[in-house]
Computed example of a mutant assay.
Amino acid sequence: MSAALRTIALEKRFGGLVATNKVDFTLEHGARHALIGPNGAGKTTFVNLLTGVLPATAGQVLLDGEDVTRLSQQRRARRGLGRTFQINQLFPAMTPVESVGLAVSERMGGGADFWRSLGARRDIIGEVLDLLERFRLIDVMDHPTARLAYGKQRLLELAVALAGNPRVLLLDEPAAGVPEAERRELLDTLAALPSDVSILLIEHDMDLVFSFADRITVLVNGTHFAEGTPGDVMKDPRVREVYLGEEEHA
């Protein structure tokens, strides 16, 4: 069986700068995989190559064995590749029920017809309410997003991403900026994400990385530097040297 997501010699150059250096990477089906690396490691560039935000200079991106290297972001999303962002991309004036409803409607091909469909179609409203309940948003479902606590906004971004029914989900620092008092709800929700969704977590919070991931890839200077179980990576002297005295940022 093909991997959920795979790259082969993936490369990105900006003039003479090599930002991603022939990276071979595999995300297995159902995996909980983390991507870490020191400041300037190239994690964001790598994720942008996976999702089609940036075109690759060379190499391949395979989604369930299908070459999607030349496909747009939208076409990759329609094939099951979802993403959350380091800085959320939510509409501040919309409520959670509207945001999730729009995402579900768009997936069903009725994005422009959203306002009629949400009230008229039981399948849409049922799925919306299920997602809002799963992500602990029922109590704030009618509140404008701009008024939600930041932890709730992060949960809403996850709900919107899951509304697209992805097979592969890339989580770009989901805990970034979330106050300590709101973190437990977010962490519990991350732990309960559907097991059939393959997840790549890009994160600087090492406590979250080691509690969430069953496999970790380390990226350094755009190069695949190390990979293994959390225990293996934690004991690797090369990884410890890279992180010695340096807090990791995206």
Rank of each mutant, 00 (worst) to 15 (best):
223 T>M: 09
228 G>Q: 07
165 N>H: 13
217 T>Q: 07
12 K>Q: 08
37 G>M: 07
89 Q>C: 11
119 G>F: 15
178 V>E: 01
39 N>G: 11
215 R>N: 05
197 V>K: 06
190 L>R: 05
98 E>R: 09
227 E>A: 13
243 Y>G: 00
195 S>N: 13
96 P>Y: 03
135 F>Q: 04
75 R>N: 14
202 I>P: 02
133 E>Q: 15
74 Q>P: 00
201 L>Q: 04
234 M>W: 07
57 T>F: 04
172 D>G: 08
158 L>A: 03
69 T>P: 09
70 R>V: 05
139 D>L: 14
69 T>Y: 08
244 L>I: 06
205 D>W: 11
93 A>P: 04
97 V>F: 00
97 V>H: 03
46 F>D: 01
226 A>M: 14
40 G>Y: 13
34 A>M: 10
102 L>M: 15
246 E>K: 15
7 T>P: 00
203 E>G: 09
25 F>H: 01
138 I>T: 15
64 D>C: 00
174 P>Y: 09
168 V>Y: 06
40 G>F: 12
228 G>V: 10
165 N>P: 02
57 T>P: 04
192 A>W: 11
114 F>W: 15
93 A>V: 11
42 G>A: 03
71 L>F: 14
153 Q>M: 10
113 D>I: 09
110 G>Y: 14
223 T>L: 05
140 V>R: 04
1 M>N: 12
201 L>C: 06
95 T>V: 03
222 G>N: 07
176 A>G: 13
238 R>I: 10
136 R>Q: 13
185 E>D: 14
39 N>W: 14
75 R>G: 07
230 P>K: 11
171 L>D: 02
162 L>S: 08
109 G>R: 13
58 A>E: 05
68 V>R: 02
109 G>M: 12
142 D>E: 12
7 T>S: 13
219 L>H: 07
214 D>H: 11
248 E>C: 15
206 M>Y: 12
55 P>S: 11
215 R>Q: 14
72 S>K: 11
27 L>P: 02
96 P>H: 03
3 A>F: 07
132 L>A: 02
229 T>Q: 08
97 V>A: 09
214 D>L: 00
206 M>T: 03
207 D>Y: 09
80 G>P: 05
30 G>P: 11
78 R>D: 14
99 S>L: 06
113 D>V: 12
103 A>P: 10
109 G>Q: 13
48 N>Q: 09
132 L>R: 00
8 I>R: 15
65 G>A: 06
228 G>F: 09
109 G>A: 07
43 K>L: 07
35 L>Q: 03
217 T>C: 01
180 E>C: 09
